[in-house]
Design a protein around this nucleic acid. Structure first.
Length: 578
DNA sequence: GCCGTTTTCGGCCCGACTGTTTTCAGTCG
């Protein structure tokens, strides 16, 4: 059994090895593109193959005869002879070498063949050895940069969670705006697309004094080191351990630049290809009539809307520019109207000091009201896990009474008495039915027993969903971004049953979780399962839903797909029907 | 390796910056 992510990782690995071998770049790109496509596929590739075999795999864009057969081999046997052959030819450690900033395929191949470098350590030793002193293209500066990049890779190898990167970027934006040197300042790249993790921060500005902006930016206290600095582009490493790029653009073509630097790369390639077919050339400097060689008249592109208009496509929101069907949807006129923060009407997962929250029920209800919610569910933990406080079968009557009393003290918001109840390893809930039936709203969530097989885990949640009181599954995979991978399930089976049982799946809006992820959101929507975007607030500041809404947008969700975007009356009706 | 409203062969997005080059290759996004 192999997940889409595993297949994607293998295809990327093949692409990297082929690159080190100096293979045809287009062949490499085919593997890279396939990896991205499968990584973002809303259906389980195992299911796709089980239903339609190689023919179904070939229907996936970018998957042809050859890749379909390779994927089939992986699904059937768990291995791939082609990859095994490649791995015999190229040392494993060279992939770490390739990951070093400044080490591309050519240089990696070179140090491997000329200096027998087979690992990050080997590369580090080589750089210190002085053997590179008289090598063409390997001056002192290059070697210094590579050594520093090795250190950085070891220290900050992973991408940064969006919840850390976005506030950092917003701080940079404020600084640039306050400098009065810039007319426009925008965040681009994966941050603007609101990916759950960020590789680097991309900033775009317009300015009459580009040189002064570059100087200011490179001298900011947040900056640890300047990596590159030119007249229109600077690249720095921030002390927080993430790189930031700044580009100064001509206001006349700001839209083209913003579009280009927002990406994703694969999205850009798709729309450029469409532009070419329509006799246009697109670059960060605009849309041009005619080919690249005979660069013709520039079409207006002050804004992104101008660019889309010029190419002949409707506006595609940044969050879904991932080449996972949005270009086709745009061509067909069937783009979704994505959920917005202002569509959210309620919050269905909030903790208080009855369990592990830090504020009282009254305080949390008042905070929910201030956040603009029409309704809120107090959902303290009901868990066996060493938690002294919390909801138990023995105190549930008291708990509900306290929620009702707190609700009376904060008029103007509807309050549900709920609980976040532990799902045991066998799928049963921690509270007995007699206790659950006293609640208005029951979320089931896994907090222990993560290490189950996909089959066991699926059976577990299918059992949970048979409970007549359960209305939602909270942070379904239990993942913690950058810390703990999520549990795997047969999602088709889960969503099918959830739809039949009228059970919602949570998109936990904490940036550490963002669980469900974007791909599963799309899958839930396709299955007709409602998603609720919950803050899981544990304190008065925890009501921010921005990351959750962003993730929902990445998952193509519309207002009608979101349970807590329903007005109170409609939500009540949904609760009643089963 | 993929793909087809100029095509089943011959294309495949486009440009900036670095380092060290004396006109450009490699890398990155």
């Amino acid at each position: 059994m192999m997940s889409n992510a595993e297949i994607a990782a293998i295809l990327k690995r093949i692409a990297d090895i082929l690159a080190i071998q100096g293979e045809n770049p287009f062949r490499i790109r085919a593997y890279e593109r396939a990896a991205v496509t499968i990584g973002g596929l809303p259906q389980d590739i195992t299911e796709v193959h089980a239903r339609g075999g190689v023919a179904a795999l070939r229907k996936i864009p970018g998957i042809g005869e050859d890749l379909a057969l390779k994927i089939e081999e992986l699904l059937r046997t768990g291995r791939l002879r082609f990859l095994a052959g490649l791995e015999r030819a190229v040392p494993k450690g060279l992939l770490d070498v390739l990951a070093v900033e400044g080490m591309g395929p050519k240089r990696t191949k070179f140090v491997w063949e000329e200096f027998r470098v087979r690992s990050l350590r080997d590369l580090e030793r080589l750089c210190h050895s002085g053997k590179l002193a008289n090598v063409r293209g390997w001056g002192e500066q290059s070697v210094r940069n590579i050594l520093q990049a090795i250190t950085m890779l070891r220290k900050f190898g992973e991408r940064m969670p969006i919840g850390r990167a976005l506030p950092l970027a917003e701080q940079l934006v404020r600084t640039l705006e306050r400098s009065r040197l810039c007319d426009r300042v925008e965040i681009a790249g994966s941050l603007r697309r609101r990916r759950e993790t960020i590789g680097d921060i991309d900033l775009l500005v317009t300015s009459e004094q580009p040189k002064r902006v570059m100087d200011l930016f490179c001298a900011l206290p947040l900056v640890a080191r300047v990596i590159a600095k030119g007249p229109t582009k600077a690249n720095v490493l921030l002390k927080a351990g993430i790189e930031a790029d700044l580009r100064v653009l001509d206001p006349e073509v700001f839209g083209a630049g913003l579009y280009y630097f927002t990406g994703s790369k694969t999205h850009n390639i798709r729309t450029r290809t469409i532009a070419i077919a329509r006799g246009l050339t697109v670059s960060e400097y605009g849309v041009f009539r005619g080919t690249k060689e005979a660069k013709g008249r520039r079409v207006a592109c002050r804004t992104e809307e101008d660019v889309f208009r010029a190419i002949g496509l409707p506006y595609i929101p940044p969050e879904i520019r991932e080449d996972t069907g949005e270009v086709e949807a745009a061509l067909a006129g069937s783009l979704p109207t994505l959920i917005e923060e202002r569509d959210i009407r309620g919050n269905l997962h909030v903790h208080t000091d009855f369990s592990d929250g830090s504020a009282s029920m009254v305080e949390m209800i008042a905070a929910a009201k201030r956040a603009g919610h029409a309704y809120v569910a107090i959902t303290d933990h009901a868990s066996s896990m060493g938690m002294v406080r919390g909801v138990k079968a023995t105190n549930i009557a008291l708990y509900v009474k306290r929620v009702r009393a707190a609700a009376r003290k904060v008029p103007g918001i509807h309050v549900l008495a709920g609980a976040e109840v532990d799902i045991r390893a066998d799928g049963s809930l921690y509270l007995p039915d007699a206790a659950l039936q006293q609640l208005d709203w029951v979320i089931g969530a896994i907090h222990q027993g993560f290490k189950q097989s996909k089959e066991q885990a699926t059976a577990r949640l299918l059992t949970t969903m048979e409970n007549p009181h359960l209305r939602a599954i909270g942070h379904p995979t239990t993942r913690l971004i950058g810390e703990r991978g999520g549990m795997e399930f047969d999602w088709d089976a889960l969503f099918r049953r959830a739809r039949e049982r009228g059970i919602a799946f949570e998109l936990n809006a904490s940036w550490m979780r963002l669980d469900l992820d974007d791909v599963r959101c799309r899958q839930a929507k396709a299955a007709g399962v409602k998603v609720c975007i919950n803050s899981d607030a544990h304190d008065l500041l925890g009501f921010d839903l921005r990351y959750g809404v962003a993730q929902a947008r990445r998952g193509w969700l519309e207002r009608g797909d979101i349970l807590n975007a329903m007005p109170w009356k409609q939500f009540q009706q949904w609760l009643r029907k089963r």
